[in-house]
């Protein structure tokens, strides 16, 4: 054992005795595993950051090309114009609805950052065959979906320079710091309300939304 690792062990022991849980070792202390090669890292290092697009790869794609790829690979679920088939998510619409009783959250109305759209399509779509699109095709699809939402013009070309500059309509409406606790309930024990005020406002009884909780799985197909 090298003198430095002995020192670390002693340090840990001292901290344990003092009741501290943290036991800080130097990098490479255990020495397990291997150093990934640059090629190995590049193969997995797929993330693109929303706020500034860091991580977006080279490549480009325009709205027209995006429409072609979209018709082939996406429209079956998300609808030709992003309107969403059945329960599949809409990718378009909902602008100005976020304060409504029934808001519609889509890429256009809700998403704060355009590079996130590239990242997500590249990461997870098309749902039946993820990670099969080229970077260019993902740029083209991103351009097309932004264009369907009237966020970029028909001539828009998406690439690592242009995407971070797209200002998404809902960008400034996120608070990224959790304000909770936001309820200040008090633990009253007796006579906490007038019993006459205790009334049922809503009940799940008879709503027919609940699957069966006995027997085989309920597909609810009959409804």
């Amino acid at each position: 054992m090298s003198s430095s690792s002995r020192r670390i062990l002693l340090l840990c022991a001292g901290m344990l005795a003092a009741g501290t849980i943290a036991c800080v070792a130097e990098p490479g202390y255990y020495g397990y595993g291997e150093r990934p090669t640059p090629e190995q890292i590049a193969g997995w290092d797929i993330d693109a950051r929303g706020i500034d697009g860091v991580g977006l790869p080279p490549g480009r794609g325009n709205v027209h090309k995006g429409a072609e790829v979209y018709a082939e690979q996406c429209a079956a679920c998300h609808g030709t114009f992003g309107e969403g088939e059945g329960r599949f998510p809409k990718l378009v619409g909902g602008a100005g609805t976020l304060r409504d009783d029934r808001p519609e959250l889509t890429v256009g109305s809700y998403w704060p950052f355009a590079p996130t759209l590239w990242d997500y399509i590249n990461r997870a779509m098309p749902m039946p065959a993820p990670h099969t699109l080229s970077a260019d095709d993902v740029y083209a699809l991103t351009a097309y979906i932004l264009n369907l939402n009237d966020i970029v013009p028909n001539e828009f070309v998406a690439d690592r320079e242009s995407l971070p500059k797209v200002k998404m309509p809902n960008r400034d409406n996120f608070l990224w710091i959790d304000p909770r606790p936001d309820t200040m309930a008090k633990p009253c024990m007796n006579g906490c309300a007038d019993p006459a005020d205790i009334r049922i406002a809503s009940t799940a009884e008879g709503k027919k939304l609940t699957p069966r909780t006995t027997g085989p799985l309920d597909t609810m197909q009959q409804r």
Partner: peptide, 20 residues
């Protein structure tokens, strides 16, 4: 990173149209 799962989803829309 502001991934899709922490922007489109897993954010909380408030009545005034802002989100947490």
């Amino acid at each position: 990173w502001h991934s899709r799962e922490e922007t489109s989803k897993y954010t909380d829309l408030m009545p005034d149209g802002t989100s947490r």
